[in-house]
Amino acid sequence: MEPYDEEQLLRNLDALLDLADPVPADLVERVKFAIEIEDIDVEAARWERSQLAGVRGDSPGTITFYVGDLTVMFNVTRTGESHRIDGWLVPAGEHGVEVRVAEHGSTTTTSDEGGRFVLTEVPRGITQILVRMNGGTPRTVVTPTVVL
């Protein structure tokens, strides 16, 4: 065979890129869902990814997301066809918590003074969590979607 020249290498890489490292099939839909929110001035939180590795399987456990000084930890328990979410917010306080699930609308609650919140009957699926922080300057924190 002929040795690779630069143009040929690039053509081969072009053919290979989408085969070897395809954009996940549902990613565009997940992005559209994630940005389909009423709040515009949002801070994007980050998932603690090492914990998420196990979440995509059958046994959700405790997972964490954070941005700036806010950390939110929650425990997911399967209850029949849905989930129960027990969460803790730091810094503690009465903040709005909204859980959006694709094709299932959203569930909202408010954390108590200690930063605890509970949501029951949360449908399973592509999930995004929003925290609306009161006190000082109001802030809205949103997570990337995750499949729960």
């Binding site: 996940p24 990613l27 997940r30 992005v31 994630a34 940005i35 929110i37 515009i40 001035d41 949002v42 994007a44 980050r46 998932w47 990814r49 949103v142 990337p144 979607t145």
Partner: peptide, 13 residues
Amino acid sequence: EDVVQTVWLSLLK
């Protein structure tokens, strides 16, 4: 996957 979503959320802002 997370970073892609974070970037689009930042664009909203």
